[in-house]
Amino acid sequence: MNIFRLAGDMTHLASVLVLLLKIHTIKSCAGISLKTQELYALVFATRYLDIFTDFISLYNTTMKLIFLGSSFSIVWYIRNHKIVSRSYDKSQDTFRHYFLIIPCLLLALLVNEKFTFKEVMWAFSIYLEAVAILPQLVLLQRTRNIDNLTGQYVFLLGAYRALYILNWIYRYFTETHYVHWITWVSGLVQTLLYADFFYYYFESWKNNKKLQLPA
């Protein structure tokens, strides 16, 4: 565990907390894509199949449980909570899951570390995580007024990915035989998807103006 990895995980955790804060305290999910949240739930469900078989550390298991629990409860809140679900605008959140899930599944069948059920599911989760933010980014573009919590949520998710890249660079130089092409390439793609968002996020911050993405 290095400082970049820890900072990345904490940023990821912070993003989840920001979203839960919005849902629990403000009782709103306005501007949040249910499609993206469902994809994340699928990402964690398929990636953490090893939760009961491979023990890495207490930290690792705890974080897995947090990400699994929070992602499924967020989906439940947006879909089923009496008040929260009212703020969900289905007509704006139109991205199709299948366009992302099917290509990722096919890619996972072709490119994986080992052709076993668990490894194919793991590779699938890595590919799917890389693109799972797309419905959220599309929704942001359509939203005239992006509220602060939504902007911060997406920013923290992007920051988490950027910190993971620093973690890989650090590990590459400090550990022997640390080479993981699947996570590196997917992680790089995932981080690049945020580039445009980051640009407008910093612009709005610098000029002290409300965040708005050009259509």
């Binding site: 990821h12 990636r47 090893d50 890495i56 897995k64 993971y164 973690n167 035989h177 640390y178």
Partner: peptide, 10 residues
């Protein structure tokens, strides 16, 4: 420490 064959990242 590395755990060979295990995915130790989240």
């Amino acid at each position: 420490g590395e755990l060979v064959g295990m995915h130790d990242e989240l």
